[in-house]
Write a protein that binds this DNA or RNA. Sequence first.
DNA 1: GAGAATTTGTTTGATCCCCAAACAATCTCC
DNA 2: GGAGATTGTTTGGGGATCAAACAAATTCTC
Lengths: 153, 153
Amino acid sequence: MGRPPVKPSAALDRGLLPSLLGYVLRRAQSAVFDDFANTFAKAGEALTPGEFGLLVLVDRNAGLSQMALARALGIDRSTLVPILDRLQERGLLMRHRSPTDGRTHALALTPAGEKALARFARLVRAHEKRIASQLSAAEIRILIDLLEKVHTG
Amino acid sequence: MGRPPVKPSAALDRGLLPSLLGYVLRRAQSAVFDDFANTFAKAGEALTPGEFGLLVLVDRNAGLSQMALARALGIDRSTLVPILDRLQERGLLMRHRSPTDGRTHALALTPAGEKALARFARLVRAHEKRIASQLSAAEIRILIDLLEKVHTG
DNA sequence: GAGAATTTGTTTGATCCCCAAACAATCTCC
DNA sequence: GGAGATTGTTTGGGGATCAAACAAATTCTC
């Protein structure tokens, strides 16, 4: 009669999961997302990684259409609409009329959006430093490289 | 007068994004998710990576409570309820009454659930092979190792 | 042992992400 | 000029997520 076979707060048996690239990737991604949210919350800002990526894309490609942006983000154009609505309501971004094509909107950051993006970029740098704190510079390069290979397929 | 400065279908300028671990991680994760969905769809099965992880956890830790499972998955217990509902409706999983604690449910796979999980595991192995097709065995080990470090923080 | 405090699973409510289909406005191509 | 394609939007339908409130059951406290 030893103790009952159920250990009070023992770690669960995860079976083959820890050996699966997909599983480990998902967990790392989740940890990174949490740190991102935390970093911004502590700074009194509200932004998701997706929104940050979107803002950078619009910043670096002024006049972009919504279709081109949706394609670059890998989402449907209808998914993009409420996301842009929100960013526009926050005064970070504008939908201008394209002079050459009446169907499309030429996206651009507002001056306030540019300033906010600079602020966000600073937070992202701090966030990146934190999530890579256990990695050497060489390891970070390797990791990014390998992830790129996974993405390319 | 060269061509206009806007190249027709040139890749967008992604600025600093490709150098950000968080960004590259998110893209890799997205590609992996797509391949997972594809693999299962082609086999006529329907399952998400999260559901697969859940099934493995229940399989390897019979009698688990919903709270313990939610903690292991890193989600709220209220989030878990509809997920279990669906799996139960599919006949893969059961909520048994715990004989020792009337508040908790003892989770377990049904026989059909066990059989389905074996089928799923085969598909996951094929999926894993595909997403890591550009990586050597050594690289996969390194990648999993580095991702684990990111997750641990 | 009785009552208070905690834990568990569930429901409800609020955001959010995602896609597909339909639609009007606009452009392109013959 | 008219047919067909493209663009942004709306609507509808899944899900994922959390927070708050609740009943049932257990554990703690006196």
